[in-house]
């Protein structure tokens, strides 16, 4: 069964995950909430990602418990703190991964519009999503071009002359970025991106009962923790 949650619900998860960090919640509450965050993964196309995250989380928990009782040399505490640190930002990572991997661009844009965010931020966001993959492709082309010219060949060549390498990679990349910016502007303008008045969305988003229910369910452990404090 597939369940599709509203992007704003996912945003709420993200906020909750952040609040966990703010309020120093105890591990019990954190684990409960994390489990709740995991569940939507299993009703999406990203089941495998969910399982992966779950396994790592359990391992982190286990290792941490083992470490804390072992002793307290500086090194041990240091390692253990790093592990705790990673585990603590895990709820953020999970909710982030869920929000990122299960939200379509159309939905994302529609949600931003519904939340009243200005087009001045939405348009650049759309362009970032559009252009991001191009950067990777460009980089590959530039690497090829450099190899053919015999510039920075070899494993650590880029690090041997960092400033030079940065120049050789960034300049063609940015030159191309300028061209793309112009072409995209032309394409978008002729398709009416600058028309004043309301822009509609083909993708529709709607808060359903399930969204609300799940949001309340996720708030519960948190409220209980704050209440019991």
């Amino acid at each position: 069964m597939k369940i599709h949650l509203d992007p704003r619900t996912k945003l709420y998860f993200l906020l909750l995950a952040n609040l966990l960090l703010f309020f120093h919640v105890d591990t019990k509450t954190e684990v409960m909430l994390t489990i709740l965050f995991f569940i939507p993964f299993f009703f999406s196309e990203r089941r495998k990602t969910g399982i992966g995250f779950g396994v790592v989380y359990v391992i982190l928990l286990a290792v941490e418990y083992g470490m804390v009782f072992l002793g307290q040399s500086v090194l041990q505490n240091f390692v253990s703190m790093v592990l705790v640190g990673i585990r603590m930002i895990f709820p953020c990572l999970i909710t982030g991964a869920y929000a990122f991997s299960t939200t379509g661009i159309g939905e994302f844009v529609c949600a931003l519009r519904r939340m009243g965010i200005t087009e001045k931020v939405i348009v650049p966001c759309m362009v970032v999503i559009r252009f991001f993959p191009t950067v990777k492709e460009d980089y590959r082309q530039i690497k090829n071009a450099m190899a053919l010219r015999g510039i920075a060949v070899g494993n650590f060549a880029l690090l041997r002359h960092p400033a030079q390498s940065l120049e050789y990679i960034l300049i063609p990349l940015l030159m191309n970025a300028n061209n793309v910016a112009q072409d995209l502007s032309v394409a978008a303008l002729t398709k009416g991106i600058g028309i004043k008045g309301k822009h509609t969305s083909m993708v529709q988003i709607r808060m359903k009962a399930l969204d609300l229910g799940y949001m309340i369910l996720c708030s519960l452990p948190f409220v209980l923790f704050l209440g019991g404090k």
Binding site: I105, G192, I193, I195, G197, K198, M202, V203
Partner: peptide, 30 residues
């Protein structure tokens, strides 16, 4: 309008969104 470079004349990543894009901008209903 249709332009020269196929790589840079689609503003949206998703093809369906690209088709809907002019309609969205003119405020057509869903």
């Amino acid at each position: 309008s249709v332009f020269q470079n196929p790589k840079t004349q689609n503003f949206n990543v998703n093809t369906t969104s690209e088709l809907a894009f002019p309609c969205e901008n003119t405020g057509m209903d869903t």
